[in-house]
Each structure stands twice: as C-alpha cells, then as structure tokens.
C-alpha cells in the first residue's frame, strides 16, 4: 500500500508527514489519518524525526512555549521529550531527549526567525485538510492571569495601596485630633483666666 506524504514549508523549516488514510473512517486516498513517521528539517540544524507520540509531545511543547512568549513569561519549559528555554542572547535552546536508551540528548539553538518558521509549519499542519489528526489534546494552554496568592509581588501590589492609605489617614486624623485637643485646652485656659 502506498503511503501519502505531505510537506509543510516555511522559509528555513520543512515538516514532512508520512502516513496512511483510515479506510474504516471512509477517508479518501489522499488523506492521512494514521501518521507513520514525520521529519522536521531546519537549515543548518540536524533533522528531527520520530513517531506520532513524539510529534504530539513536540507540538504541545511548542504551542505551550509560544503562549508563554505571548504572555511575556519566557520561562524554561520542560517535558518528557523536549526542554525549551530562552538564553541571554534571545535565542531558543532546545534539548531533545531520545526515547531510545544510550542515545545522548540533542541540543539545538534556534534563532527567533527559525523558531517562528517551525511554529508556522506546525500551524500549517494543524490547518491542513489532508491530515486528520486529533489536535484537541494539543491546544495552547493559556492560564488566565488572575489574582494569585502565591505571587508575592502581586500580593504586595494589592496590599500596599490600602495599607498606605490607611496609615496616611490615621496619621492625618491623629495629627488633626492633637491640634484640636490642644486648641480646646487653650480655649478652656482662656475661659478660666477670664473668669478669674
């Protein structure tokens, strides 16, 4: 049986998907529902290839990392298969861990341009009508930036203004009370003096 092959290209990156249609789901001959292998080629970088599980994990990590970039939290992202982090030069370091024993992890350094190329290849794959793939499990996880008690800086930002306001009000009122009392005492003294 002949396998179908589709490539998604964006400038310096190329993603190749090879697989078969699932006739039990009445797929057309050109469609891919069963991905047998995939290969990601980036200029000046070694090729990355693997099975469906690897593709799912890599897609998930890339989407998660891209959402972190957008949210302004370019933190280190670690998963079973791939680690991504941003270095001091603004480049993205990828550490691909092989599932095969005794295989050293592969280190890649992607520039911003290459990173966006790879992400756009994944987007093309996701939007492709010829490839039927369950992307429901692979969606960018966006955490709503709500109030978080564990975030100390946020907690400080929330607590400081009312505390400062309360302190300033109490200071002003106490000083005003002191003035009022001293003024009242002086008035009393004046009335007493005037009686004598």
């Amino acid at each position: 049986m002949l396998q179908n092959k589709y490539t998604f290209t964006q400038s310096s990156a190329e993603l190749e998907i090879v697989g078969l249609p699932d006739y039990s789901k009445s797929d057309s001959e050109k469609k891919i529902s069963i991905i047998s292998k995939w290969k990601l080629s980036i200029i000046d970088q070694p090729d990355i290839e693997g099975g469906l599980d690897h593709l799912k994990l890599i897609l998930q990590s890339f989407y998660k990392y891209s959402s972190l970039i957008i949210l302004g939290k370019e933190e280190k992202l670690e998963s079973k298969l791939i680690d991504i982090n941003l270095d001091e030069d603004g480049l993205h370091n990828l550490l691909l861990k092989s599932t095969k024993p005794q295989v050293e992890p592969l280190k890649l350094k992607l520039g911003n341009a290459e990173f966006t190329d790879v992400l756009n290849c994944f987007d093309q794959l996701k939007q492709s009508e010829n490839i039927s793939f369950n992307f429901q499990t692979i969606s960018s996880s966006y955490k709503k930036q709500g109030f978080n008690l564990r975030n100390k800086s946020k907690l400080k930002n929330v607590l400081y203004p009312p505390l400062l306001a309360f302190l300033s009000i109490s200071l002003i009122t106490s000083s005003l009370l002191y003035l009022y009392e001293s003024n009242q005492k002086r008035n009393e003294d004046i009335t007493l003096k005037s009686k004598f």
């Binding site: 959402s67 957008i70 911003n112 966006t116 960018s140 709503k144």
Partner: peptide, 25 residues
C-alpha cells in the same frame, strides 16, 4: 524583539487565537 516575535507567531489562524487570548487576558 518581543513585539516582532509575537507578530510572527500570530500570522496564522491559530496565531490570531493566540493573540486574542493574550489581549483578553
């Protein structure tokens, strides 16, 4: 760099969703 990177990431249909969720957050 961040602005350009976000624009580059947001150039697809998925990218539009990413940008929208970011701005709504």
């Amino acid at each position: 760099r961040k602005i350009l990177l976000i624009l580059a990431i947001c150039q697809s249909e998925d990218g539009y969703d990413r940008l929208k969720i970011y701005l709504l957050n």
